[in-house]
Design a binder for these strands. Structure first.
Lengths: 177, 177
DNA sequence: ACGGTATACCTCGGCACCGATGTATGGTGC
DNA sequence: GCACCATACATCGGTGCCGAGGTATACCGT
């Protein structure tokens, strides 16, 4: 998730670590903050894997900074991660939102649609959070107001997302024809 | 999150690891599966911390099983984690839903309401995923259909949750009076 | 002069998590 | 007779993540 965000931001423009950090904080920081001690090692990992290069530059304001630039291999890796996300990226909202934030980088509308269809298939599966045996329970069947809240909120999210997915898939199909 | 779920399920009734695993899979598995190799060490951690005890019992079907039972300290720890959740438990939906699934265990309606109010405060903060400088962008201002989707979905979730939170807080206040 | 804050990057220890793999038993299908 | 699956628990190596702490520069207010 973090690596995807790094690759996604750098695909737009080279950045140095500090600005990248602020971009990531804006994207997901209110929900799931990323520590500096997580970001810098992640950058080094990606550098070691040949996905980005660092160039030292005199600091505009303070200490010298390392401008990060995607390599060609880094661009290809971003495309792979966008086009063939792991199942976790599809099911976990945090991961999914990060993926959506950069899905526009995938040039082919058919490839974009294929990813959306995976999410659609996931949302269309009958799934709950609470069961009686194997039978999913609906909000109305629960006495617990907090568990009822979970289902109420999840249902509202699901409805909004299904509507958006169907709309967006329809318009991607129009482009693809 | 995992530890909270373990404590929460065991508070209802003693269980052995395998059944606990299926309970957890039902609760959060469709979004974020938990590996066996994560669950068993987590159980050992909690045992080592004195929050639960394991009792060997001849296996009903197969191998002998370890029935897990919360200690008194385990019950107190659950109450602490429910009443004073870390900020991550409030902001991250995955964590938050797990907390909600067990919030009924917190006996005091005022304490339950205090937790809901922390979530309410978080949701009422103006926050987006995308910014122009410091100004949060609305869905309508975005060209990117995927980023627009993120905001559309997040807004629907937020609305449903705010309505539920206000309803539930009102009824908790009625009980508390 | 000095503290506070923002910029800018880094290391280290500890720990949670995961995939792969191992070890059993017993029931079901072919 | 044998494969397969469900039950039931466990270890191990690798890795990602985090908090705490460290090292600088530069500007602003007092």
């Amino acid at each position: 998730m973090l690596e995807l965000a790094i690759l996604g931001f750098l695909y737009d423009a080279p950045l140095h670590g500090y600005v990248l950090r602020r971009h990531i904080a804006a994207l997901t920081g209110h929900v799931r903050p990323v520590a500096e001690s997580t970001l810098y090692p992640a950058i080094k990992r990606l550098e070691k894997a040949g996905l980005l290069v660092r160039a030292s530059e005199p600091g505009a304001v303070a200490a010298p900074r390392h401008v990060l630039r995607l390599t060609e291999e880094g661009g290809r890796e971003l495309m792979r991660r966008l086009a063939e996300p792991a199942q976790r990226e599809i099911t976990d909202e945090n991961h999914w939102f990060t993926l959506l934030a950069f899905l526009r980088h995938l040039a082919d509308p058919a490839a974009q649609a294929a990813v959306l269809r995976r999410r659609l298939a996931f949302l269309e599966e009958p799934a709950s959070f609470f069961y009686e045996g194997d039978r999913p329970l609906s909000a109305e069947e629960l006495d617990d107001p907090f568990r009822r809240g979970v289902l109420t909120i999840a249902r509202a999210t699901s409805r909004a997302e299904l509507a958006w997915l169907r709309d967006t898939l329809a318009s991607l199909d129009r482009v693809g024809r």
